[in-house]
């Protein structure tokens, strides 16, 4: 009987993607209809779709999107510079590795809420808080990635270059930097996603604009559909940046890699 089912249902990636999306919506609807505990407060996919559309049309989202974008821009920007510098220091010189290792360990382990709240304490309401929080949380992650990349440089290549008397500058540019680039890039993607999330969290706690702020707003009025519509926006944008933009760059720059990299971590 099973051979009557067309193969493409299983093999065509796009169709499977559709099946997946449909499945999610179905599960959601079923949960909405049947789970007694939450029936009163839950929302159906349709309600969320309507709310999202309303939100989109009303153009309210523009102001907050721009605000969030700027928070992330500054926070992520600082994290990139600080993280890369820190990563190089820690990766290349033993002294800095030992001196900073505890800070990195703590930096990665510290719950982001702590950072968000402390930023709120120091910088109060406004735009600095989310930017600072994002910068503080993302930096150790990027530094760790760069550190790992530098540790994994193939020593054989370095001795080869030395044997051929290649100038130091050339070795740095064409061996060291190239070798670390994939890890740096992976770190960059992760740090960006992280910056988005932390900035939103900090916005929730102490900002007057931004996606996080709007989520808080909707929460205050107990509007679940409203909250979800903002989440949908947020997620869509993040996915677009991740796979649309960064993913494309990654594919071009790393064409030499044969493996299929979706860039999970």
């Amino acid at each position: 009987m099973f051979d009557k089912i067309p193969q493409s249902l299983f093999e065509n990636r796009f169709i499977v993607f559709l099946e997946s999306t449909v499945a999610i919506v179905i599960v959601w609807t079923i949960a909405y209809r049947t789970l007694p505990l939450i029936r009163e407060s839950f929302v159906s996919p349709t309600e969320v779709a309507i709310a999202t559309r309303e939100l989109f049309v009303s153009m309210i989202w523009v102001e907050h999107f721009v605000a969030s974008l700027s928070h992330v821009f500054y926070g992520f920007g600082i994290a990139v510079v600080a993280g890369t510098v820190l990563g190089i220091l820690v990766g290349w010189w033993d002294f800095w590795e030992k001196a900073f290792q505890d800070y990195l360990t703590v930096g990665i382990a510290i719950p982001s809420l702590f950072v968000a709240i402390f930023s709120a304490m120091w910088f109060g309401l406004g735009s600095t808080t989310p930017a600072a929080a994002a910068a503080i949380v993302a930096t150790p992650y990027l530094a760790t990635n760069v550190y790992g990349g530098i540790n994994n440089i193939d020593n054989d290549l370095l001795t080869m270059a030395r044997a051929f008397d290649v100038s130091r500058f050339r070795v740095i540019k064409r061996v060291i930097v190239q070798s670390v680039l994939p890890d740096w890039f992976a770190g960059l993607r992760y740090a960006l996603a992280l910056s988005w999330k932390i900035a939103s969290l900090a916005e929730y706690i102490a900002a007057e604009q931004g996606i996080g702020y709007m989520i808080r707003f909707e929460m205050r009025v107990l509007d679940l559909a409203g909250v979800l519509s903002w989440v949908v926006f947020f997620t869509a944008l993040l996915l677009f940046i991740e796979y649309g933009i960064l993913g494309q760059i990654e594919k071009r720059v790393f064409a030499w890699r044969q493996r299929d990299s979706i860039g999970w971590v």
Partner: peptide, 15 residues
């Protein structure tokens, strides 16, 4: 001038 050939090729995979 010395030319070197190693046991493993030691080529840069990104070039």
């Amino acid at each position: 001038t010395l030319g070197h050939v190693f046991q493993s090729p030691r080529l840069m995979p990104w070039d």
